[in-house]
Design a binder for these strands. Sequence first.
DNA 1: TCACAATGTATTTTT
DNA 2: TACATTGTGA
Length: 691
Amino acid sequence: MDLSKLNPPQREAVVTLEGPLLVLAGAGSGKTRVITHRIVHLLNERPGLIMARNILAVTFTNKAATEMKERLVHMAGPRAQGVLVCTFHAFGAEMLREDIHRLGWPRKFAIADMGDQLANIRRAMREHKIDDRAFDARKVLTLISKAKNSGKAPEPKPEGIGDDYDLITHLVYPDYQLSLKAQGSVDFDDLLLLPARLLREHPDLYEKYTRRFRYLLVDEFQDTNTAQLELLKLLAGRSRNVCAVGDDDQCIYSWRGAEVRNILDFDRLFPGGKEVRLEQNYRSVQTVLDAANAVIAKNPERKAKQMWTDRKGGTKVKVVTCPNDEEEARFVAHEIQKHMALGISADDIAVLYRTNGQSRPIEEMLREKNIGYEVVGGSEFFDRREVKDVIAYFKVIVNKLDEISLLRIVNVPSRGIGDVTMERLSVHARGEGVTLWTVMKKAADYEDLPPGAGARVLDFVEMVERYRAAYEHGQLANVTRKLLEEIGFREATRAHATSATAADKKLKGVDGVLNSLENFEKREGPKASLLTYLNRLSLDTRQEEEEVPGANRRVTLMTVHASKGLEYRLVFFIGMEEDLMPHGGMQGEAQNLEEERRLCYVGITRAKEVLYLTRAATRVKRGKEVPRTPSRFLEDLPPEVIEVMDMDAPREGPPTTEEKNFFANLKERFKKPAVPGGPPGGAGPAGGAAR
DNA sequence: TCACAATGTATTTTT
DNA sequence: TACATTGTGA
C-alpha cells in the first residue's frame, strides 16, 4: 500500500496504531480513505500478530458498513473478510445473539421495531388509565429512549415534577421494559445497553470480547450517544486502541441522543491519546467551501478547524427563488435536464431536502420529464399495511410471546376471531398468569367466548404451529407463499382495496416481501432463518436494491441526514426557507438552531462542483398555499460567492443570453471530470441574476 | 363481526 | 391534501 499518496496528517492517522487517537476530519477531508488505509496498514504492519478478526470498525449506517467492507476487500484482498465492519447496533445484536441468555432473555430474542415499541407504550399507557390518543406515544418513546441512553434505570416516580410527558414517561417506562422482556424482545437502545451490561457484569465475557477486538475504529464519532460511548469504553479494554473519526460540525443526530461532547471531550474520555486534524478539503471547489464555512462559522463551541481547498474558483453558488414548490420542482428538473445534456451523469446529481415530504413534487416532475431517480430512505415500504401484516405473521411464527404481532394478525384476513374473543382470552391469560398463546391453545375450554370462536382460535393456533415447523427447513420464500395462499391473503387484500390499481399496489408490497426473502436466502445461504431475517430487517431497513439493468444511473433524492458522508458533482438543496431549513420543530418550542446550522453545513458540503440553494416564495401546506420566508442561513452566505436568481415569472421561451453564457461556462468546466487541483479559477458566469 | 362512510388530524431527521 | 381512525348499520 502506498502511504505517500496521503497528506501528512492523514499519514499520521494511518500509522498511529496504538493508544487512543482522535481524527478530526472536516467535510471532504478524505476520512474514509484514512480509515480504510489504517485498517489495511494494521493488517500489513503486524502480520500474524494482528489478525483481521481482531479489528472492529463501527460505522453509522449499514450502507456505510457495506461500502467500507467492499473497499477493504478490494484493497487488501480476501484476508480483509475477517474484519468486522458494522453499526454499533448490529454489533450489539451480534453480541447478544451469543450471550443474551446470561441476562435472562431467551436465546432467540427478537428486536422490537418502532411499531412494536409504540404498541407497547400505548398498552402501558392504557393500563395507567392514560388516554393514548390525547398523548403522543412517540413523544413518550423519545423520552424513554433518552432516559435509557443517558444511563438512567427505570424510575418509578419523578421528584421534580416536570410536565405531563415526564410524568407519563416515568409511569410507563418500567412497564414498557417489563413487557418487552416478557415478549422476549429488546429495543434499539437495548442493543447497546445490554452488551455493555454483559461486559460490565461478566468478567469472562469482558475477557472474551476485549481479547478478540483489540483494534477499534469508530466512524462518525460526533454522532455517538452515551450508550455507544459506554460500550466503546468497555470494549476498548486495557489497551485502549480506539481510533475515533469525526467532525463536530457534522453532528446532526443530537435529537437521537448524539453527544457532541463525546468528540469535544475525547482527550478526557481517553486520556493520553493523540489528536490529528484533517483540514484540507479535497471535495469542493472554493465557492462551495466558502459558502459552507460562512454558514458554520456562526456556531459557537466548535473545535476550530480551518478547512481549505486548492480547487480555487468554481461556479458561484446559485441562490434561487421560485414562486411556489411546484415551480421549484420544475426548476430543479429543468436544470437537471440541462446539466445532463451537458454530459453530467445522473448519478453525479443529488437533490437534498430537510423533510421526506419534500420529495413528492420533485418526484412527480422528474417522472414527468422522464429523468430516472432514486429516493433514498424514507422508503415507506416496510410501513405499508400489508407488508407489516406479513412481517407480523413472521414474528408470531418465530416468537409466540410476541402478543403485539399476534393481536395484529389473529384476525387478518378476517377469520372470525374478533376483539371480543381476544379480549376475553387476554383476561383469562392474565387471571391464570400465563401467556396469551398458552390460553389460545386451550381456547375450547372457555365457556365465555362467542359461539364457534374457540374452534376458530384452535384452527389458527394449529396453523401457526404447522408453519413454525415448516419454516425450520429453510425455503423461506416458498413456505411464505404457501402460507399466504392458505390464509387467502392476496384475495383478502384485493377485496379490501378500493380500486384495482390500489390492489395491485398492495399486492406489490407482498411481492416485495417475497422478493426480499428470496434475496436474503440467496445471500445468506443455508444459515438463513426467519429469525435472522427479522433481525436483519429491524437493523437495516434499506430496501433491496432493485436490479434493473441499465436503469442504475439515476438522480438521487434524499434528506440531508441521509446524505451525510456522500458527495455529488451537482447538488440541489431545496426548501431553503424558515421553518424548513432551519426546521420549525413541533409547535414552535425548542428548535435546535445550532444543529440546524450544522445540517445546512452538511448539505452544502455534499457538493463538489455546482450547488443550487432553492426556495419557494409560497408552498402548499395542508392543502393551503402559505407564504414563506427565506432561510436565515442564506443571509450568511458571502455575496461574492453567490449568484441570486429569481424565477418569479416562469418562462418557457428560449434561453436568455445570460443563460447561454452561464451554460457555456458550465460546459467548459465539465468537459473533463474534475481535475484534482481544480479547473482554472474565476470560471463563474458572467453577469448576475437572471432577472 | 364486518364493511363502509364520515370525520377529524397530522407534519423532522433514523439505528 | 391524504390518511387513519371512529362510528354506524347490516
